[in-house]
Amino acid sequence: MHAVLGAADALGEPLIGLVGDPAFYHRFGFVPSRSIGITAPDSSWGDYFQVRTLAQYDGMTGHFSYAGPFDRL
Rank of each mutant, 00 (worst) to 15 (best):
G20D: 07
L15S: 07
S44E: 11
P22F: 03
A40H: 01
F64N: 02
D58C: 09
P32I: 08
T61Q: 14
D71L: 12
G68T: 15
H63Q: 13
A23R: 08
L15Q: 05
D21M: 01
M60P: 00
T39A: 13
G59I: 06
Y57M: 03
P69E: 09
S44P: 01
S35P: 00
Y57N: 05
S65W: 10
Y66G: 08
E13Y: 12
Q50Y: 04
G29V: 07
R27Y: 00
L15P: 06
D71G: 14
G20Y: 05
W45F: 13
M60V: 08
F49T: 01
A10P: 04
Y48L: 09
A23N: 10
G59Q: 08
S35R: 11
D9E: 13
P14N: 08
S35Q: 13
L5H: 12
L73A: 11
I38K: 01
G62R: 06
S43K: 12
Y66P: 04
F49M: 05
V51S: 02
D58K: 12
R52S: 02
V31I: 12
I16W: 07
R27F: 02
A10F: 03
S35D: 14
L11F: 09
G6A: 15
G29P: 01
F49A: 02
H26Y: 06
A8D: 07
D71Q: 14
L5F: 05
D42C: 09
Y25L: 06
G17H: 05
G46H: 11
A40K: 00
P69D: 03
A67F: 04
L18E: 02
W45R: 09
D42N: 14
M1E: 15
